[in-house]
Amino acid sequence: MVSARLSLVDWLREELRLTGTHVGCEHGICGACSVMFDGEPLRSCLVFAVQANGHRITTVEGLAKPDGSLSVLQDSFCQTHALQCGYCTPGMLIAAQGLLEANADPTEAQIREAIGGNLCRCTGYQQIVDAVRLAATRLSEGAK
């Protein structure tokens, strides 16, 4: 039984103990709490857990391959040093995942637009843009 006032992010973190999804601003500005909601990025601090009933949610923990190894996108973040503290990273990965699923060959401007709703306070955005671009290239070359 889920309390009607419980946000989706609190349910994921506190009830399911999926703490990869982070709580940043709690009012939809920072994007750290982003999850895939029926295949599209969504801020899980802005919806109640009960609203997710019947929908398909993927958190950062679900981005890895079935065998647990890193996805091409996750590995690309490591390759280009797209994180320092890592707090914004789950949201960045979700935003990038949503972009790449809709657009396999995004331009730098499209990448910047896609992560425009996600705040990073340490790395700066260039390496994150580089990571998404690298992932797109790798995926187009058939990397699994």
């Binding site: 982070h22 950062v60 040093h81 890592g86 707090y87």
Partner: peptide, 14 residues
């Protein structure tokens, strides 16, 4: 980095 991109960082709130 691998544990952070996999959602396995361990922050105080976790």
């Amino acid at each position: 980095d691998p544990r952070f991109v996999a959602g396995r960082g361990r922050y105080a709130a976790d």
